[in-house]
Design a binder for these strands. Structure first.
Length: 291
DNA sequence: AAATCAGACAACCGCTCCCGA
DNA sequence: TTCGGGAGCGGTTGTCTGATT
């Protein structure tokens, strides 16, 4: 089977550390359209990266709900226990640790947990050697197969994590065919760097009659207060807790988690439960920003 | 202060799996 | 049933940073 060319074989593809500008473009695109096709995404997002690189950057670093910082003792113990049972099934192990990525778990294992686990095994072996006779005697004639641990099934894993984006799958977008994204082609053609740094602080807010049922326009941006930056995406942790407190029952777990940007792209129907204007935020519909 | 080393983490690469035509 | 292509996974490498000499 012919292989698709890897990133380094595609001319003009950037490699290495992501810049803040690249991150901003990826966030802007995925937040707006979801990840309908990683391979096509870089072209439409204005990125000189291969799709795999974009996917990895989003899943491991940019997507909402990522937990950063040190692993807790409980997390480390869980990793060690699960690794003992499952081996190098990093994605399965990571699924049991909300907010942690497989890459992060894998790295943490190799840098610090592996040695500890080996040390534990050595310690246990020493302990076992003194008790081996008792253990052998106590398990003789018993069926110990029931002690096998069954890995969690995929439904359990997805329920724990919640959706990754406003579009939980490409099927939620009006079409999965790249041919139907002609409107994007024409948009991307005209876009320049100023778009990604567009100042939305003075964008008129309010309700624009939505006569278009196309999923790509049936959304709106929530803009939190205090947007002192000239950039569209700056850090602000307050939004998640605000939504959480405001109307938890109508907002799924994705939106109740702090998402580190102060401009949020949300399903339009979600706004029906929120005030259209308040001291807390303003609403800017796609029609305002993208017209 | 400079050089070296080690640990941590980000990113790449190649393979396999899975789905749709 | 076969084949092509995209997504996902795990191993590996590269890079950065702080500690040590």
């Amino acid at each position: 089977m012919a292989r698709t060319p890897s990133c380094d074989k595609i001319s003009g593809m950037r490699k290495g550390t992501w810049t803040a500008e690249e991150d901003r473009k990826l966030i802007a695109y995925v937040t707006r359209y979801g990840f309908w096709n990683w391979r096509q995404l870089p072209k439409f997002a204005g990125l000189s990266r291969c799709g795999k690189s974009c996917r990895l950057r989003w899943l491991n670093y940019l997507r909402p709900n990522i937990r950063r910082g040190n692993f807790t003792k409980d997390e480390e113990e869980l990793i060690i226990r699960m690794h003992k049972k499952l081996g190098n099934k990093w994605s399965t192990i990571a699924a049991e640790l909300p907010g942690r990525t497989d890459n992060e778990v894998k790295n943490h294992w190799h840098t610090s947990l592996k040695k500890r686990a080996i040390d534990n095994i050595v310690t246990n072996e020493e302990t076992k050697s003194t008790k081996s006779k008792d253990i052998i005697e106590s398990t003789q004639g018993r069926d110990i197969s029931n002690y096998q641990i069954t890995p969690p099934d995929s439904s359990q894993i997805s329920n724990n994590n919640g959706p990754l984006s406003p579009f939980s799958s490409s099927s939620e977008i009006s079409s999965t065919s790249s041919d139907d994204f002609g409107f994007l082609d024409s948009f991307i053609k005209d876009v320049d760097i100023s778009f990604w740094l567009h100042d939305i602080s003075n964008t008129p807010s309010g309700i624009v009659q939505n006569n278009n049922n196309d999923a790509t326009t049936n959304n709106a941006f929530l803009v939190s207060p205090g947007n002192s930056s000239n950039e569209s995406f700056v850090m602000d942790n307050d939004f998640g807790s605000f939504l959480d407190a405001y109307n938890e029952s109508t907002v799924d777990s994705f939106w109740t988690q702090p998402y580190e940007a102060d401009m949020y792209h949300v399903p339009r129907q979600m706004l029906t439960s929120l005030p259209m204007e308040s001291e807390y935020f303003s609403i800017v519909y796609d029609d305002d920003i993208w017209s």
